[in-house]
Each structure stands twice: as structure tokens, then as C-alpha cells.
């Protein structure tokens, strides 16, 4: 039976992980390869590496980091951050990434989804959507949540599927950082209307929140960052807990 996936997310700036990382059993919390390897050993099902470097120059070095990640990590991983063309994606996949995630550039130019999907296959195109509720409408934001757009979550997710996205990574900005649980209502609605997998993101605080995302939100996967980095929720314990609650997860 296909399992629900647990996905730690690492933000990378100038080749180093950012946001605090609080591990005792890791020598260098800033090294994305070492942290990713640790998560893989702990039973993470996939990893996401987001490059938040400010300049294009720094982004160019990202492909060599991706190669280093692929060399050491034996589970699938997605990379993203600032991708806006077929030419941006090719070196990342050639370096060993399994999927790429796109966000702002796809909002600006929705054709990018079609182009990437045709060039590399739908299975490696993850459309990331950051949205928050404004006047009761889930409004899509770009540039790390800074800029509101005209697009609405549900119609944009549907359009992305039709254009050839292989997965939707939905981050609720209203839940992100609150540790009060995932946005299960819109997740459930995305499940009803889409045929492609949905990754829940934003709001993870406890192990129970993952149960809710999978049962109420019907998400295919759940992504989190700080609770894993700070060890508030440990992946092996999370997976044992999910299994005890009859959620189908991969145990290793």
C-alpha cells in the first residue's frame, strides 16, 4: 500500500541551512548535506531544499550543492527557489534532484508549468502555492508570501494540474509558524478537486497535527521545518505514532 510521506524542508542560503537548527547529534547544523543525511537515516520519505539566496550569482552555486546532496542522500528530494525557466531546471535534475518546485515565476508566467512539464515530465514538477485567507478567499501570494496576487488557491491549483504540474505543495500562511496544526479544511477541498498529490505545509506543531492533515486534510504528504530542526517532533517517533494510529507509513 502506498504510504503517506513525511517531508522535512531545509532553507538554504549561500549553501548553508538557515533558520535555527538544534541538534545534539550532528556536527554542523548549517551543512545541508549532513542535516539531510540525518533526516534520511531517521526515516524521512523525501526532502525539500529551498534556495533562498538573494542573488543570481549565489544561485549558480546551488547546482553544485544539489550534486553534493544527490551524492550522499539515498531518498528522493525536491529543490526550489528562484526557478523561472527550463534552463534553470535542467542542471538541477542533471545534478541528481528528483523534482523541482516552482512558485512566484509560475504565477507570473503560468506557461512555465506547461513548458517544464513537457520538458521533464509532470512527475518532477511541484507547484508550490503560498496562500492566506483574505475576505474569506484563499489568496495566492508570491515572493515568500510578501506579495498578494489576483489568483485564488483552488482555481490556481486546478489550473496548475491542467497545465501539467505533478504535485501541489500548499502552504497556508495563516497557519505557518503558529504550530497550531495544518490548514485541514482547504487541504480536504484540494483533495476533492484534484487528481494529483497534495503536500500539506504550514502549522505543524505536534504529532497529532500530522494525523489531522492525513485524516481530515487527506493530504498525501506533510512537510515541516522547524519542529524537525529543533527536535520538537522527531521523525522516528512521529512515524511510530502515525503507525499506531493506523496511518500507513514507511517504517525502516
Amino acid at each position: 500500500m502506498l504510504t503517506k510521506r513525511i517531508i522535512p524542508c531545509l532553507d538554504i542560503k549561500d549553501g548553508r541551512t538557515v533558520k535555527g537548527v538544534n541538534f545534539v547529534n550532528i556536527r554542523d547544523a548549517g551543512d545541508p548535506v549532513e542535516l539531510g543525511t540525518l533526516y534520511a537515516q531517521q526515516g524521512a520519505d523525501e526532502l525539500v531544499f529551498l534556495d533562498i539566496s538573494a542573488t543570481n550569482e549565489q544561485r549558480k552555486t546551488f547546482a553544485s550543492l544539489v550534486r553534493d546532496i544527490a551524492r550522499h542522500i539515498n531518498i528522493p528530494f525536491t529543490v526550489g527557489g528562484g526557478i523561472s525557466s527550463v534552463a534553470d531546471v535542467a542542471p538541477l535534475l542533471e545534478a541528481g534532484a528528483d523534482k523541482v518546485s516552482i512558485n512566484s515565476a509560475a504565477v507570473r508566467n503560468p506557461n512555465l508549468i506547461d513548458e517544464l512539464s513537457r520538458a521533464f515530465g509532470a512527475q518532477c514538477i511541484v507547484l508550490a502555492i503560498d496562500a492566506r485567507k483574505i475576505d474569506n478567499l484563499w489568496t495566492v501570494h508570491t515572493h515568500g508570501g510578501k506579495n498578494p496576487t489576483d489568483k485564488k488557491l483552488f482555481s490556481w491549483a486546478k489550473e496548475a494540474q491542467e497545465r501539467g504540474a505533478g504535485e501541489i505543495l500548499f502552504t497556508s500562511m495563516d497557519h505557518d509558524g503558529t504550530k497550531s496544526g495544518f490548514a485541514n479544511d482547504p487541504l480536504g477541498k484540494l483533495y476533492e478537486m484534484l487528481q494529483i498529490p497534495v503536500i500539506a505545509s504550514g502549522g505543524a506543531g505536534t504529532k497529532e497535527h500530522f494525523i489531522d492533515a492525513f485524516v481530515l486534510g487527506k493530504a498525501d504528504a506533510a512537510l515541516a521545518a522547524s519542529i524537525f530542526h529543533f527536535g520538537e517532533v522527531k521523525i522516528p517517533e512521529l512515524k511510530s505514532f502515525l503507525k499506531s494510529k493506523e496511518i500507513n507509513v514507511r517504517m525502516n
Binding site: 500500500m1 502506498l2 520519505d45 494529483i196 498529490p197 498525501d220
Partner: peptide
């Protein structure tokens, strides 16, 4: 052929 809400492609970990 998709069936019972099982999506295609088959993507992820399976036993």
C-alpha cells in the same frame, strides 16, 4: 487506470 481515489502516477513508497 485510476480507481478508488488512487492517483496516477503511482508516486511514493510502497511495499
Amino acid at each position: 487506470i485510476p480507481k478508488d481515489n488512487l492517483k496516477v502516477p503511482h508516486m511514493g513508497w510502497n511495499n
